[in-house]
Design a protein around this nucleic acid. Sequence first.
DNA 1: ACCCAGGTGGCCC
DNA 2: GGGCCACATGGG
Length: 223
Amino acid sequence: MKTGSRLLEMYDALVRDHGTLDWWPGRTKLEIVVGAILTQNTAWSNVEKSIAVLKERGWLRIRTLERVPEDRLARAIRSSGYFRQKARKLRAFLRYFRERHGGSFRRMARMGTDSLREELLGIWGIGPETADSILLYALGRPVFVVDAYTHRVLRRHGAHPGGGYEDLRGIIEREIRGTAALYNDLHAQIVWVGHRYCKTRPRCAACPLLPFLPGGVAVEAGR
DNA sequence: ACCCAGGTGGCCC
DNA sequence: GGGCCACATGGG
């Protein structure tokens, strides 16, 4: 299949353009998990504000966060949008984390990636992207995180093999046997280019992936 | 006054 | 198993 090699060529073009990115703003594993949940279908700038509030209040620790009532937590993360839903999701994770791992990432890390992934997907509010973000960014597992940009960027550049989340993840992981560091940067590059050039209204003029646009440059380059 | 953002669960067929 | 909808704020 040429999807993998084409994707790899696109990745190389992005790295040549601006270097590797070394991603995910988050000092601790808990902060990464919280960020992964809060950023669901939400701009990161909105999430930053919520994280700042949690830090100011000293709530960004397991034992503390567990004890914050759901409605108070919801108000604190208001800027992230869907704040009632997300407060519930955070508490659902914390409950699982306490009951299953005693609130310890060290213990959680003893699990194999596949079985842990299944457990994370069983938590209310944790879907495939959030689960994989936790596995990759908090636990350093070699998992590729598929997101809306991944679908869009690959589709626009004729590199999408079709299928949904699991299909795409499987194909990419099979064709690019990466370390966690590579999957980290690959995802970061896709979000970078998606954010700057490949939104629903694409702005392809100065995009490093311009050479990969199928059927000539002009088709999607307008607007 | 729109449109959109690093999704997910519930419900329907 | 796919198609739709609610969930909600802040920035362009």
